[in-house]
Write a protein that binds this DNA or RNA. Structure first.
Lengths: 154, 154
DNA sequence: TGCTATCTTTACGTTTACGTAAACTAGATG
DNA sequence: CATCTAGTTTACGTAAACGTAAAGATAGCA
């Protein structure tokens, strides 16, 4: 199994602030919980923590992940699947933790958000073009197939 | 300049078959032409060739890129920006060069195309979710800003 | 002819995002 | 109590996607 799965349900179950909190499941998750839910390795979760993307609590040595950690993890995975580096994802997540900063910082954050959104919109356009291309090629192949099968029957 | 630009015009100027051919510009491009047009290094183009993504002709030692090469390069870049690895992009491009293969191969190709398209659609959904998140957070910040400035005037 | 600019191959270096192995600890279970 | 089972830290390994430096070939030009 060398290729990642990515067939699971799409990510972002709730806002990354994790303040909504009144949803269904638990409020605390073990490392195994998250590896199973998101199909990532424990190593990956520790690595994300090392990089400042997650910051789980501890019970002795064990890591305990909050809803907020879980939401952030979902955000990291979503960001990755659409082409952001971990560093870029961290920058975006940091913007959330800025909520009560200085006015200047808020303005900077707003600008960055805007840039991210624009970039994502461009990516969507790229995806649309590639899908169109693939669909075109796909249709062409289908016609060839049909032609062959027709010939086989004659 | 550690981060890539990505502000240029979106890619895919023409179908990757490169058979359309009747567009505007030239029919032959030097390595410099392509580095400038697509904002990639010469090293990158040679690397892509080494990996079987491009296959330019030669005039002596110099590489000469055709419209088809150029179209394929555009496809590679588009594929990369939406999260495909070079290997995956190569697989997709190979499907195009299969046009006259066996019926079985055509069917395999069709299946793969379908999977690619599905994956891209999922990615689009992810992007939409992230954009929605970013927009929400952005709006929240704007409100905070407005509140502060209002307070400053009072 | 000598210089410069551009291209080439070869090869080692670098960053990102983890994998994997070793050695240790703590709690559960027969 | 011994032995799993999960978890932990530390550290080296690796694949992808190039960057970068070295050294040589070629073409244009003053």
């Amino acid at each position: 199994m060398t290729e990642l799965d990515h067939s699971g349900p799409s990510v972002l179950p709730e806002p990354v602030t994790g303040f909504a909190g009144s949803a269904a499941g638990r409020d605390i998750f073990t490392i195994r919980d998250l590896t199973k839910e998101f199909a990532v390795s424990a190593r990956t979760l520790r690595f994300y923590e090392e990089k400042g993307l997650l910051d789980p609590a501890r019970r002795g040595e064990q890591r305990l992940y909050s809803r907020r950690d879980r939401a952030r993890l979902a955000y990291v995975i979503a960001g990755k699947t659409v082409g952001f580096s971990l560093e870029e994802v961290r920058e975006m997540l940091d913007l959330y933790d800025l909520g009560d900063g200085q006015v200047t910082q808020l303005k900077v954050a707003l600008t960055k958000f805007g840039q991210r959104i624009e970039r994502l919109e461009r990516q969507k356009a790229d995806i649309d073009r590639i899908v169109a291309e693939l669909t075109r090629a796909s249709d062409a192949m289908k016609e060839k197939l049909a032609a062959r099968e027709h010939a086989d029957q004659a």
